[in-house]
Design a protein around this nucleic acid. Structure first.
Lengths: 143, 143
DNA sequence: TATCATCTTGAGACGGTTTATCAATTTCAA
DNA sequence: TTGAAATTGATAAACCGTCTCAAGATGATA
């Protein structure tokens, strides 16, 4: 829970800095968002319908985009939908995605990260964020 | 031009193998496609409207997807649109994207590719393709 | 080269996802 | 507590990419 509180503070500061307001909906969505790795707006909409049947889909989209602006989430276009990943309290993780069954395995590799920095520096860039996705077949789908 | 011919041959073979036909439109789209790095269907639609005002947008989508199936292109969801990258005669390249001005710099790093394979193997995956994007500020935008 | 089964095309309809609109409501600084 | 400003929910609208289908093109075969 301390993690949730920490994130709530990040949100609070972002809101303050931009003259935005902390609403019941934003708190609710953040709490639910922190409990999972990858969500779509649609999925959250159904999840949260139980807690607040009047929460609108547009509000979820708006709020998830807000989280992205606050640096707490990252949008990823996958298939026809946009997935929102929690990049706040854990280091950025990358994805191994099975093109057969859609399974997503997360991984982290410091060595790759180091090489990325190297490439960026060589090209005069300063990295803000990155995205690495490996697409392939998992062992089950290969048979 | 020899490159174009080589690619045309790749297409021809793919078509033959799948009982598909080589049409004027497919040739036209391939030629234009090979001249650039990243395109969206929409962009090609406008480019080609000059050469063939009756070329339909659906045909461009279909053809670009065909190129993907033939292993000559790779689709990438970028922002709200799909970009098609030419991966045929050059090795797979990754992207360094400036969040300030939108500049895209391409790079290739064998060491990173090797580590990717390593990660995949460790998780029982066989990689088909991958995507690595580094987002940051280029030297000009930092000032 | 003529035939014709099959594939492809263009135009627009369509479906799913995300954003825009706007009146009503909520937030929060004073 | 008040009121300016931001936010919300409901829904309309925009957007992208695919599907449909009649008309046309292709190319294997004779």
């Amino acid at each position: 829970m301390s993690k949730d509180l920490k994130e709530m503070e990040v949100l609070r500061q972002h809101l303050a800095k931009h003259q935005l307001k902390l609403t019941r909906q934003r708190e609710l969505i953040l709490t639910a968002f922190l409990r999972q790795e990858h969500v779509t707006a649609e999925v959250m909409y159904h999840q949260l319908a139980k807690k607040d049947p009047h929460l609108g889909l547009a509000t979820i989209y708006r709020t998830l985009n807000l989280f992205c602006e606050a640096g707490m989430a990252q949008a990823r276009h996958f298939g026809s939908q946009t997935q929102y990943d929690n990049i706040s309290h854990k280091g950025h993780h990358d994805h191994l995605i099975c093109t057969g069954c859609g399974t997503i395995v997360e991984f982290e590799n410091c060595e790759i990260e180091r090489l990325q920095e190297e490439v960026a520096t060589k090209n005069g860039f300063v990295i803000q964020t990155h995205r690495l996705e490996l697409y392939g077949l998992c062992s089950r789908c290969r048979h």
